[in-house]
Amino acid sequence: MHIALDPRTKLYMILVVSMVVLMTATTPFLWGVRIFMTMVPITLLFIEKKYASAIRFLIFYGVALVLTFFFLSEDSSGILTAILIGYCGIVVQFMPAMITAWYCVRTTKIDEFMSAMQKLHVPDGIAISLAVVMRFFPTIKEEYGSIRDAMKMRGISFGGGNALKMVEYRMIPLLFSCVNIGDELSAAAITRGLDGNVKRTSIVELKLRTADILLMLVFTTVLGIFIYCKYFR
């Protein structure tokens, strides 16, 4: 089975999830709504055959939920629990937004994204920059991995315990490669006529299908229920 969602639906999903993430769940019912909402992108990941990451997210989220509900409470103390609470807190609180964002970034092709942005009348500057940001996180991770490998090969691990050196040793090579990649990217963009004065056409035709409309409805309902239960009851 294959569902190709419209990038606009994905953007809408991100918007709703970010808004819900801002409001903390206080009752078990609201927790249920939140968990349901988190399950949607995970299911979508399964459908897109990204099993590894879907299972990873599922386990992460599940463990954090169990820990928060059964083992931690307001009056737990001690440094280890404090760290544990912190990490469980961040996972439970922000994971839904992170999963959704990750799903959207991984499954949206850049031309689809640009075409959606054009349809939404987002200024070119913001659309292009945002597309670059989206594509750049994996690149940074990759480059950082090679820098770490190179350092390991030469036996440099912590920069001699000097905090400033530690930052410098990692940051400078990373910046070098990022600047170079940026130059290549600009050259590629110019050959594709990103600087042109005419309206750009796109090879992908964006259309809202049944699945898109269904998902948008579901998410709107979730948002409505959440706001209603939290503020008007």
Partner: peptide, 14 residues
């Protein structure tokens, strides 16, 4: 121009 937007994108990501 496009080059400037790309520069902005990269440094924002960092």
């Amino acid at each position: 121009k496009a080059k400037d937007f790309i520069t902005v994108g990269i440094f924002t990501a960092i």
